[in-house]
């Protein structure tokens, strides 16, 4: 559903993404790994349309979306879940969710989706009248993800470090939400380096180093290759 051909992108004057080609199919999970500054976040932002690529093509469901503006990509069903959350702080929790549903016009459908979100995240139902800035870090991250998966037509999720700085309870909750997405045949591209999470979800991986993909394969293979992990991820497997 997502195909990237030789993508190059700059962040200001910095040459960050230096020629990346990838494919993601429905029901796939692709873990983007790599050290800080490898260009992972910039890569996700370029797919979403926050950053215009200097070269290369992005195809989504067979359509060339390289020159499509951010909002059109969102309407086609791509969702970006930023690592720094970027909620709408002065809006209430429920309004944050409604923003994600703002192109649906039937009232019943909107209520259905809200109900669905509240069954996935029961905590948010209790908090729905609070402003987003009043939530705790973990609750904010729940909302960040809930807001993105609220729309029924969202098909591809670009998730940036979803479990960063979260307690284990929240992190495993997020892992199970991602597993559900995959089960529903949606595509997920996720920047995450926690080995336990990768083991739990499975799927494919791609290691980025200095803006390029240096290694690709299935997570299972990666887990058996101590060498790759130590070289590019700087984590010691236990």
């Amino acid at each position: 559903m997502l195909e990237i051909q030789d993508l190059h992108a700059y962040l200001g004057h910095l040459y960050v993404v230096q020629g990346v080609s990838l494919r993601v199919e429905r029901g796939d999970v692709l873990f983007i790994l790599g050290r800080n500054g490898a260009g992972k976040t910039t890569f996700l932002k370029t797919i979403m349309g926050f950053i215009n690529p200097s070269r290369g093509r992005i195809f989504y469901e067979g359509i060339d979306i390289t020159s499509k503006p951010l909002y059109e990509r969102a309407r086609m069903g791509i969702r970006y879940i930023p690592d720094n959350r970027r909620l709408f702080p002065t809006l209430t929790v429920e309004e944050n969710l409604l923003v994600g549903l703002s192109d649906i016009h039937e009232r019943k459908k909107i209520l259905d989706r809200l109900e669905y979100i509240y069954t996935v995240f029961p905590d948010l139902k209790k908090l729905r009248k609070l402003r987003a800035k009043q939530l705790s870090g973990g609750q904010q991250q729940m909302l960040n993800i809930a807001r993105a998966i609220a729309h029924p037509d969202a098909k591809l999720f670009l998730i940036d470090e979803p479990t960063e700085g979260l307690s284990p309870i929240y992190a495993s909750k997020i892992a199970s939400v991602i597993q559900d997405l995959v089960r529903e045949d949606r595509g997920v591209v996720i920047v995450e380096t926690k080995p336990w999470l990768m083991k739990k979800i499975g799927g494919m991986y791609a290691i980025m180093n200095n803006g390029k993909i240096v290694s690709q394969g299935s997570v299972k293979d990666l887990m058996s290759s101590r060498d790759l992990i130590e070289r590019y991820l700087g984590v010691t497997m236990s």
């Binding site: 349309g49 909002y71 969102a74 709408f88 002065t90 809006l91 923003v99 703002s102």
Partner: peptide, 24 residues
């Protein structure tokens, strides 16, 4: 109203609002 909400959200973060399909 929906428009009022979008405007308030846009004041908070006018880039992120587009990532939810709003033509700013």
């Amino acid at each position: 109203t929906r428009y009022g909400m979008i405007i308030r959200a846009g004041i908070d973060d006018r880039e992120m609002i587009q990532a939810f399909g709003v033509n700013i």
